[in-house]
Design a protein around this nucleic acid. Structure first.
Lengths: 161, 161
DNA sequence: AATGGTTATCTTGATAATCGAGATAAAATC
DNA sequence: GATTTTATCTCGATTATCAAGATAACCATT
């Protein structure tokens, strides 16, 4: 293998490890933030999921979070009580319960992430447009990979470990 | 503001949001993985912390994880029982208990992340060395930011919310 | 329209992770 | 040497989660 190729492999390995470290910090950050907001880690996680997906059913929430149906019911109870979401019966299929995020509360959550977002934008402002385009493509790429890996794990779980 | 500048600001905002989405998926991934491995989310998180820090005291673990001292004791009990760590009395300060990760088990954890790491490296192999250098610098940059934000949250917590 | 089977959510009792306050013991400070 | 602080552990209470079963709506077949 060429010297150039080896160098690149090394960089890829380096990148993979750095990304892993970053991921760990993200997990810690979310947990710290939940604690600051006075909610359980699961609750913040769920609010964030709903923020991205919009209204979904309890079943979908169960699948995404990996919680049992019973836990999801309790989870929704908590989120409803604290005003983050509301239950809405689906008129199409009346067994279904749609979980709808409440805008006002969602905004309050986002406010907590402002500091992080600003720091990120600030730090990345040193990159020029071409570099930013590369970085953005990278983040979107690894996001897709995460989606794929998560899908694999969810399917495994459904087929009984 | 110039048209160019506006475009860049938009890209930065876009990047920040994409990164947030990626973070959410990382959190879900770790939770899914913990479930697959049959351990509590906290336990995997702790094992990963120890993997990076090396041996630390119970107190430091309490600070990093945000758990109470009582919970940390129980946490270490679980990790010790399942062979992930061992307690070691610090001879310098005999109140202290050092938590030392056990290599063999740590490796077993890493094995679970191989699929993700390979997929990441594969996907990023399309970038050339210059691009990879930019991306790597970016990841290291946002990791530092996360460290800083986490430190802020930990200090807030210690000063009673 | 009746039946049986599947799907979606909720209910309930049990388990266990976490908290919080207090106990113990070692170190640091005066 | 006495007091205060620090580090961990112990233990009872709380609560998030699970697992299994109940309920109710949908769907397909007859």
């Amino acid at each position: 293998m060429s010297r150039d190729k080896l160098q690149k492999l090394e960089m890829l390995e380096n990148l993979s490890q750095s990304l892993h470290k970053y991921g760990m910090r993200t997990v810690l950050f979310q947990q710290n933030m939940a604690q600051k907001m006075g909610v359980v880690h699961t609750d913040l996680k769920t609010a964030e999921i709903l923020n991205e997906t919009g209204p979904i059913t309890a079943g979908e929430l169960s699948r995404i979070t990996g919680l049992s149906s019973g836990s999801v019911t309790a989870l929704i109870d908590r989120l409803e009580k604290t005003g983050y979401v509301m239950r809405e019966k689906d008129e199409e299929d009346r067994r279904r319960v749609m979980i709808t995020p409440i805008q006002k509360r969602q905004q309050q959550i986002k406010d907590h992430f402002v500091s992080l977002a600003e720091a990120t934008k600030e730090a990345c402002s040193t990159y020029n447009k071409e570099e930013l385009a590369v970085i953005l493509s990278f983040v979107e790429k690894v996001t897709k990979i995460m989606d794929h890996e998560n899908e694999k794990l969810m399917v495994e779980r459904e087929n009984g470990n």
